[in-house]
Design a binder for these strands. Structure first.
Lengths: 142, 142
DNA sequence: ATACACATTATAATAATTCTAAACTATTGA
DNA sequence: TCAATAGTTTAGAATTATTATAATGTGTAT
């Protein structure tokens, strides 16, 4: 059984047609042990490297957004110039290394569950995200 | 004593020349009781309204970034298309109302201090930010 | 196999931000 | 007080990231 099969099913399940490009993107994104954090640019580069044929930039954007909408990907915004996507869509938190520009999962055991004593009235909490910015200990008067 | 005086001093203190534009921006940003959350677009609009003469968009960007670098403003990134600045640069957390697109401070008493049991080795924590996305209770299957 | 709805593509368009170079202004010190 | 100068503002051009367009291609149900 080829490893694509589950991706084809997975895509069908959420109502996305399993096109060549989408299946390829699934392979790149989800065929790995650990969760994966990436920018659009990094993803485009990886796909180009792993595919013989070219993929359109528009397709990558469309597909990433389709995956996001269907709950396969989650966006993590760092600042106005840097936005990542995360293959781990469950509720979890991140370190952002300002030296290497890497996003790193915070282990569930290393942070207490956030609990709010009050919420905005009439509103429902959709998500709670913690971002911990870290940088090298010496060069910190940038 | 005109209310500008302290802004002129404040600007001098951090090594920024107190130009007309910067003093005006200080007035708009810091001459208020509560902390202020704004996008660049909103700020440009407010300044234009309060000033007789026009201000260049480039100046607003430059000045906001100068203020940010000097610690007068903090950026809060919501997603790749929406970035706010906050006049409250002390460590605190936010609600983001996905209906009204408003950023709202979380009262210090309503959230426990985040404490991490582990940090990335060799790294120093620069900031810890919590973002709580909320939306109207009914229309939540968007 | 066919038809239809949906996807992909290259390219154009848009939007947000930064760059550029000329004109301007605050500061310094003679 | 008055240059000199260093930093600032400006309009507009350039750049970058993202989205729209419209033609072509493809997956799926019949």
């Amino acid at each position: 059984m080829p490893k694509n099969c589950n991706f084809i099913e997975k895509l069908r399940d959420v109502g996305l047609r399993p096109t060549k490009q989408r299946v390829k993107m699934c392979e790149v994104l989800f065929n790995r042990e650990k969760t994966f954090h990436f920018t659009i640019n990094e993803l485009v580069k990886m796909i180009s490297e792993q595919m013989n044929q070219k993929i359109s930039l528009a397709t990558v954007y469309n597909t990433v957004h389709a995956f996001e909408k269907k709950g396969y990907l989650k966006e993590i915004s760092i600042d106005s110039h840097r936005s990542y996507f995360d293959t781990n869509t469950s509720s979890h938190h991140h370190f952002f290394d300002e030296d290497t520009h890497q996003l790193i999962d915070i282990d569930k055991n290393d942070i207490d569950t956030i609990n709010l004593k009050k919420n905005i009235s009439g509103k429902k909490i959709n998500s709670i995200e913690v971002l911990v910015r870290v940088a090298s200990d010496n060069q910190n008067q940038k």
